[in-house]
Amino acid sequence: MSGAGEAPVVRERALELLRGMLRIRQFEDRCAQLYGEQKIRGFLHLYNGQEAVATGVMECLGPEDSIVATYREHGHAIARGIPMTTLMAEMYGKREGVSRGRGGSMHLFDAATRFYGGNAIVAGGLPMAVGLALANRLARRSGIAVCFFGEGAAAEGEFHESLNLAALWHLPVLFVCENNLYAMGTALARSQATTDIAVRARTYTLEAQAVDGMDVLAVAAATRRAVASLRAGGGPVLLECRTYRFRAHSMFDAQLYREREEVEAWRERGPLISFTRRIKAAGLITEDDFQRLQAEAEAEVDAAVVFAESGEWEPVEDLGRFVYAETGA
Protein backbone atom coordinates (compact mmCIF):
# COMPACT_ATOMS: atom_id res chain seq x y z
CA MET A 1 0.00 0.00 0.00
CA SER A 2 2.30 2.77 -1.12
CA GLY A 3 3.19 4.69 -4.24
CA ALA A 4 6.61 5.59 -5.51
CA GLY A 5 8.62 7.63 -3.04
CA GLU A 6 5.85 7.63 -0.45
CA ALA A 7 6.10 6.51 3.13
CA PRO A 8 5.06 2.87 3.31
CA VAL A 9 1.81 2.07 5.05
CA VAL A 10 2.83 -0.41 7.67
CA ARG A 11 0.67 -1.43 10.59
CA GLU A 12 2.18 1.12 13.01
CA ARG A 13 1.61 3.98 10.62
CA ALA A 14 -1.90 2.87 9.77
CA LEU A 15 -2.77 2.71 13.45
CA GLU A 16 -1.18 6.11 14.07
CA LEU A 17 -3.09 7.84 11.28
CA LEU A 18 -6.35 6.21 12.28
CA ARG A 19 -5.76 7.11 15.91
CA GLY A 20 -5.07 10.70 14.88
CA MET A 21 -8.33 11.03 12.99
CA LEU A 22 -10.37 9.20 15.63
CA ARG A 23 -9.06 11.47 18.38
CA ILE A 24 -10.18 14.54 16.45
CA ARG A 25 -13.59 13.05 15.66
CA GLN A 26 -14.23 11.99 19.24
CA PHE A 27 -13.02 15.26 20.71
CA GLU A 28 -15.36 17.20 18.45
CA ASP A 29 -18.35 14.92 18.89
CA ARG A 30 -17.99 15.57 22.59
CA CYS A 31 -17.64 19.30 21.97
CA ALA A 32 -20.94 19.27 20.09
CA GLN A 33 -22.57 17.50 23.02
CA LEU A 34 -21.02 19.92 25.51
CA TYR A 35 -22.26 22.80 23.41
CA GLY A 36 -25.80 21.42 23.80
CA GLU A 37 -25.21 21.33 27.53
CA GLN A 38 -24.03 24.96 27.36
CA LYS A 39 -20.63 24.05 28.77
CA ILE A 40 -19.08 25.43 25.59
CA ARG A 41 -20.45 28.74 24.33
CA GLY A 42 -19.77 31.26 21.60
CA PHE A 43 -19.06 29.96 18.12
CA LEU A 44 -18.14 26.31 17.60
CA HIS A 45 -16.95 25.32 14.13
CA LEU A 46 -16.47 21.59 13.77
CA TYR A 47 -13.93 19.92 11.52
CA ASN A 48 -15.99 16.73 11.10
CA GLY A 49 -15.23 15.32 7.65
CA GLN A 50 -11.94 17.14 7.13
CA GLU A 51 -9.80 15.15 9.60
CA ALA A 52 -7.63 13.62 6.88
CA VAL A 53 -6.20 17.03 5.99
CA ALA A 54 -4.81 18.08 9.38
CA THR A 55 -3.76 14.50 10.18
CA GLY A 56 -2.02 13.94 6.86
CA VAL A 57 -0.24 17.31 6.82
CA MET A 58 0.93 17.24 10.44
CA GLU A 59 2.43 13.78 9.99
CA CYS A 60 5.05 15.34 7.72
CA LEU A 61 6.06 18.30 9.91
CA GLY A 62 8.73 18.71 12.55
CA PRO A 63 8.87 20.68 15.80
CA GLU A 64 10.78 23.48 14.04
CA ASP A 65 7.85 24.24 11.74
CA SER A 66 5.26 26.94 12.44
CA ILE A 67 1.51 26.43 12.07
CA VAL A 68 -1.13 29.06 11.35
CA ALA A 69 -4.73 27.88 11.27
CA THR A 70 -8.27 29.19 11.13
CA TYR A 71 -11.22 29.30 13.49
CA ARG A 72 -12.01 25.68 12.51
CA GLU A 73 -8.76 24.50 14.07
CA HIS A 74 -9.50 21.89 16.76
CA GLY A 75 -8.26 19.17 14.43
CA HIS A 76 -5.04 20.98 13.63
CA ALA A 77 -4.32 21.63 17.29
CA ILE A 78 -4.87 17.99 18.22
CA ALA A 79 -2.89 16.70 15.27
CA ARG A 80 -0.06 19.07 16.13
CA GLY A 81 0.21 17.39 19.52
CA ILE A 82 -1.32 19.95 21.86
CA PRO A 83 -2.77 17.99 24.79
CA MET A 84 -6.53 17.44 24.67
CA THR A 85 -6.77 18.45 28.32
CA THR A 86 -5.67 22.05 27.82
CA LEU A 87 -7.60 22.25 24.55
CA MET A 88 -10.82 21.20 26.27
CA ALA A 89 -10.14 23.63 29.12
CA GLU A 90 -9.89 26.36 26.47
CA MET A 91 -13.23 25.29 25.01
CA TYR A 92 -14.67 25.88 28.47
CA GLY A 93 -12.89 29.21 28.84
CA LYS A 94 -10.91 28.06 31.85
CA ARG A 95 -7.54 29.53 32.87
CA GLU A 96 -5.91 26.10 32.36
CA GLY A 97 -6.78 26.40 28.68
CA VAL A 98 -4.11 26.78 26.01
CA SER A 99 -4.92 30.48 25.71
CA ARG A 100 -5.78 30.89 29.42
CA GLY A 101 -9.42 30.88 28.41
CA ARG A 102 -9.15 34.14 26.52
CA GLY A 103 -9.55 32.68 23.06
CA GLY A 104 -12.04 29.84 23.17
CA SER A 105 -12.74 27.48 20.29
CA MET A 106 -11.61 29.87 17.56
CA HIS A 107 -8.35 31.00 19.12
CA LEU A 108 -6.17 28.11 20.22
CA PHE A 109 -2.52 29.11 20.67
CA ASP A 110 0.48 27.12 21.83
CA ALA A 111 4.01 28.46 21.82
CA ALA A 112 5.53 25.07 22.69
CA THR A 113 4.38 23.53 19.40
CA ARG A 114 4.67 26.78 17.37
CA PHE A 115 0.92 26.85 16.90
CA TYR A 116 0.15 30.47 16.02
CA GLY A 117 -3.54 30.22 16.33
CA GLY A 118 -6.83 30.00 15.34
CA ASN A 119 -7.42 33.14 13.28
CA ALA A 120 -11.09 34.04 12.90
CA ILE A 121 -10.63 36.57 10.12
CA VAL A 122 -10.84 34.70 6.83
CA ALA A 123 -7.37 34.90 5.16
CA GLY A 124 -6.04 36.90 8.11
CA GLY A 125 -3.46 34.24 8.91
CA LEU A 126 -1.82 34.10 5.50
CA PRO A 127 0.34 37.24 5.83
CA MET A 128 1.50 36.06 9.25
CA ALA A 129 2.60 32.73 7.82
CA VAL A 130 4.60 34.59 5.18
CA GLY A 131 6.31 36.53 7.97
CA LEU A 132 7.04 33.42 10.01
CA ALA A 133 8.69 31.92 6.94
CA LEU A 134 10.62 35.15 6.38
CA ALA A 135 11.91 34.98 9.95
CA ASN A 136 13.08 31.42 9.39
CA ARG A 137 14.80 32.43 6.19
CA LEU A 138 16.54 35.49 7.63
CA ALA A 139 17.57 33.63 10.78
CA ARG A 140 18.87 30.73 8.63
CA ARG A 141 16.58 28.23 10.33
CA SER A 142 15.28 25.12 8.59
CA GLY A 143 11.65 25.45 9.71
CA ILE A 144 8.84 26.11 7.28
CA ALA A 145 5.53 27.87 7.85
CA VAL A 146 2.32 25.98 7.18
CA CYS A 147 -0.86 27.95 6.75
CA PHE A 148 -4.32 26.34 6.69
CA PHE A 149 -7.31 28.19 5.29
CA GLY A 150 -10.56 27.48 3.51
CA GLU A 151 -11.43 28.06 -0.12
CA GLY A 152 -13.43 31.10 0.94
CA ALA A 153 -10.13 32.82 1.73
CA ALA A 154 -9.21 32.73 -1.95
CA ALA A 155 -11.71 35.54 -2.51
CA GLU A 156 -9.92 37.79 -0.03
CA GLY A 157 -7.21 40.25 -1.01
CA GLU A 158 -4.89 38.88 1.66
CA PHE A 159 -4.78 35.53 -0.16
CA HIS A 160 -3.51 37.16 -3.33
CA GLU A 161 -1.16 39.55 -1.57
CA SER A 162 0.33 36.75 0.51
CA LEU A 163 0.83 34.29 -2.34
CA ASN A 164 2.48 36.99 -4.39
CA LEU A 165 4.78 38.07 -1.57
CA ALA A 166 5.75 34.51 -0.64
CA ALA A 167 6.51 33.71 -4.28
CA LEU A 168 8.34 36.99 -4.90
CA TRP A 169 10.59 36.39 -1.89
CA HIS A 170 10.80 32.64 -2.51
CA LEU A 171 9.79 31.84 1.07
CA PRO A 172 9.27 28.41 2.65
CA VAL A 173 5.49 28.54 3.10
CA LEU A 174 3.15 25.64 2.59
CA PHE A 175 -0.32 27.00 1.90
CA VAL A 176 -2.93 24.35 2.61
CA CYS A 177 -6.30 25.28 1.20
CA GLU A 178 -9.03 23.09 2.62
CA ASN A 179 -11.65 23.35 -0.05
CA ASN A 180 -14.85 22.15 1.59
CA LEU A 181 -16.94 23.84 -1.12
CA TYR A 182 -18.81 26.25 1.13
CA ALA A 183 -17.77 29.58 2.59
CA MET A 184 -20.25 29.39 5.45
CA GLY A 185 -23.35 28.94 3.26
CA THR A 186 -22.12 30.23 -0.07
CA ALA A 187 -20.97 27.61 -2.54
CA LEU A 188 -17.63 28.21 -4.20
CA ALA A 189 -19.16 28.44 -7.66
CA ARG A 190 -21.61 31.07 -6.43
CA SER A 191 -18.87 33.34 -5.15
CA GLN A 192 -15.66 32.89 -7.15
CA ALA A 193 -15.21 33.13 -10.91
CA THR A 194 -12.36 30.63 -10.94
CA THR A 195 -13.18 27.64 -8.78
CA ASP A 196 -9.85 25.86 -9.23
CA ILE A 197 -7.72 27.22 -6.41
CA ALA A 198 -4.52 25.57 -7.62
CA VAL A 199 -4.86 27.31 -10.97
CA ARG A 200 -5.01 30.65 -9.24
CA ALA A 201 -1.96 29.88 -7.13
CA ARG A 202 0.02 29.01 -10.27
CA THR A 203 -0.58 32.49 -11.65
CA TYR A 204 1.66 33.69 -8.81
CA THR A 205 4.24 31.05 -9.86
CA LEU A 206 3.59 28.80 -6.87
CA GLU A 207 3.88 25.07 -7.18
CA ALA A 208 0.26 24.04 -6.73
CA GLN A 209 -1.57 20.77 -6.69
CA ALA A 210 -5.09 19.54 -5.98
CA VAL A 211 -5.31 16.56 -3.64
CA ASP A 212 -8.12 14.27 -2.50
CA GLY A 213 -8.61 15.76 0.94
CA MET A 214 -10.67 12.79 2.07
CA ASP A 215 -7.68 10.49 1.68
CA VAL A 216 -5.18 10.86 4.50
CA LEU A 217 -2.49 9.00 2.56
CA ALA A 218 -2.88 11.22 -0.48
CA VAL A 219 -2.66 14.34 1.72
CA ALA A 220 0.42 13.01 3.49
CA ALA A 221 2.13 12.04 0.25
CA ALA A 222 1.57 15.44 -1.31
CA THR A 223 2.65 17.19 1.87
CA ARG A 224 5.80 15.10 2.16
CA ARG A 225 6.82 16.08 -1.35
CA ALA A 226 6.04 19.74 -0.69
CA VAL A 227 7.97 19.81 2.60
CA ALA A 228 11.00 18.19 0.98
CA SER A 229 10.96 20.83 -1.71
CA LEU A 230 10.59 23.65 0.82
CA ARG A 231 13.38 22.36 3.03
CA ALA A 232 15.61 22.08 -0.02
CA GLY A 233 15.16 25.80 -0.60
CA GLY A 234 12.23 25.70 -3.01
CA GLY A 235 9.64 28.46 -3.23
CA PRO A 236 6.16 28.33 -1.69
CA VAL A 237 3.76 25.49 -2.43
CA LEU A 238 -0.02 25.37 -2.34
CA LEU A 239 -2.01 22.21 -1.78
CA GLU A 240 -5.70 22.37 -2.48
CA CYS A 241 -7.22 19.61 -0.41
CA ARG A 242 -10.70 18.81 -1.74
CA THR A 243 -12.76 17.89 1.22
CA TYR A 244 -16.18 18.32 2.79
CA ARG A 245 -17.60 19.48 6.08
CA PHE A 246 -20.22 16.98 7.29
CA ARG A 247 -21.64 19.13 10.04
CA ALA A 248 -23.03 22.63 9.91
CA HIS A 249 -20.75 25.67 9.52
CA SER A 250 -21.31 26.51 13.17
CA MET A 251 -23.87 25.49 15.75
CA PHE A 252 -26.19 28.24 14.49
CA ASP A 253 -26.36 26.97 10.92
CA ALA A 254 -29.62 25.35 9.68
CA GLN A 255 -27.90 24.20 6.45
CA LEU A 256 -30.52 25.53 4.04
CA TYR A 257 -27.94 25.88 1.29
CA ARG A 258 -27.18 22.24 0.52
CA GLU A 259 -29.11 19.03 -0.10
CA ARG A 260 -29.10 16.15 2.32
CA GLU A 261 -28.25 13.79 -0.57
CA GLU A 262 -25.07 15.74 -1.24
CA VAL A 263 -23.97 15.42 2.38
CA GLU A 264 -24.76 11.70 2.37
CA ALA A 265 -22.78 11.13 -0.82
CA TRP A 266 -19.72 12.79 0.73
CA ARG A 267 -20.18 10.85 3.95
CA GLU A 268 -19.73 7.64 1.98
CA ARG A 269 -16.24 8.92 1.13
CA GLY A 270 -15.57 10.07 4.69
CA PRO A 271 -11.91 10.08 5.73
CA LEU A 272 -12.41 7.75 8.66
CA ILE A 273 -14.59 5.10 7.07
CA SER A 274 -12.66 5.04 3.81
CA PHE A 275 -9.30 4.73 5.52
CA THR A 276 -10.55 2.13 8.01
CA ARG A 277 -12.06 0.07 5.20
CA ARG A 278 -8.82 0.29 3.28
CA ILE A 279 -6.38 -0.73 6.00
CA LYS A 280 -8.68 -3.51 7.20
CA ALA A 281 -8.87 -4.86 3.64
CA ALA A 282 -5.08 -4.73 3.46
CA GLY A 283 -4.92 -6.76 6.64
CA LEU A 284 -3.05 -4.06 8.54
CA ILE A 285 -5.57 -3.75 11.36
CA THR A 286 -8.49 -5.72 12.73
CA GLU A 287 -11.89 -4.68 14.05
CA ASP A 288 -10.48 -5.25 17.53
CA ASP A 289 -7.76 -2.70 16.81
CA PHE A 290 -10.39 -0.24 15.67
CA GLN A 291 -12.50 -0.79 18.79
CA ARG A 292 -9.44 -0.38 20.98
CA LEU A 293 -8.47 2.91 19.34
CA GLN A 294 -12.04 4.12 19.69
CA ALA A 295 -12.04 3.25 23.39
CA GLU A 296 -8.67 4.91 23.95
CA ALA A 297 -9.77 8.11 22.25
CA GLU A 298 -12.98 8.11 24.24
CA ALA A 299 -11.05 7.67 27.49
CA GLU A 300 -8.74 10.53 26.50
CA VAL A 301 -11.72 12.78 25.82
CA ASP A 302 -13.30 11.75 29.13
CA ALA A 303 -10.11 12.73 30.93
CA ALA A 304 -9.99 16.04 29.05
CA VAL A 305 -13.54 16.83 30.14
CA VAL A 306 -12.69 16.02 33.76
CA PHE A 307 -9.64 18.30 33.45
CA ALA A 308 -11.72 21.13 32.00
CA GLU A 309 -14.52 20.69 34.53
CA SER A 310 -12.08 20.89 37.43
CA GLY A 311 -10.32 23.93 35.97
CA GLU A 312 -10.68 27.41 37.40
CA TRP A 313 -11.95 30.67 36.02
CA GLU A 314 -9.35 33.35 35.49
CA PRO A 315 -9.84 35.84 38.32
CA VAL A 316 -11.60 38.98 37.08
CA GLU A 317 -8.73 41.01 38.55
CA ASP A 318 -6.56 39.52 35.79
CA LEU A 319 -8.85 40.74 33.00
CA GLY A 320 -6.32 43.33 31.85
CA ARG A 321 -3.29 41.04 31.89
CA PHE A 322 -1.50 40.36 28.59
CA VAL A 323 -2.96 43.34 26.74
CA TYR A 324 0.68 44.34 26.81
CA ALA A 325 3.54 41.89 27.18
CA GLU A 326 4.64 41.08 30.70
CA THR A 327 8.22 40.32 29.74
CA GLY A 328 10.86 42.31 27.88
CA ALA A 329 11.44 41.83 24.17
Binding site: S66, V68, Y116, G124, L126, P127, M128, A129, V130, G131, L132, A133, L134, A135, N136, L138, A139, A145, G157, E158, E161, S162, N164, L165
Partner: peptide, 17 residues
Protein backbone atom coordinates in the same frame (compact mmCIF):
# COMPACT_ATOMS: atom_id res chain seq x y z
CA UNK B 1 0.27 45.01 -0.46
CA UNK B 2 -0.13 46.79 2.87
CA UNK B 3 -2.03 43.96 4.47
CA UNK B 4 0.48 41.31 3.43
CA UNK B 5 3.62 43.15 4.42
CA UNK B 6 2.24 44.40 7.72
CA UNK B 7 1.02 40.86 8.44
CA UNK B 8 4.41 39.53 7.39
CA UNK B 9 5.94 41.95 9.88
CA UNK B 10 3.73 40.45 12.58
CA UNK B 11 4.78 36.95 11.57
CA UNK B 12 8.44 37.91 11.48
CA UNK B 13 8.14 39.46 14.94
CA UNK B 14 6.52 36.25 16.21
CA UNK B 15 9.40 34.39 14.58
CA UNK B 16 11.94 36.26 16.69
CA UNK B 17 12.96 39.14 14.44
Amino acid sequence: SESAFVGAGIGAALGGL
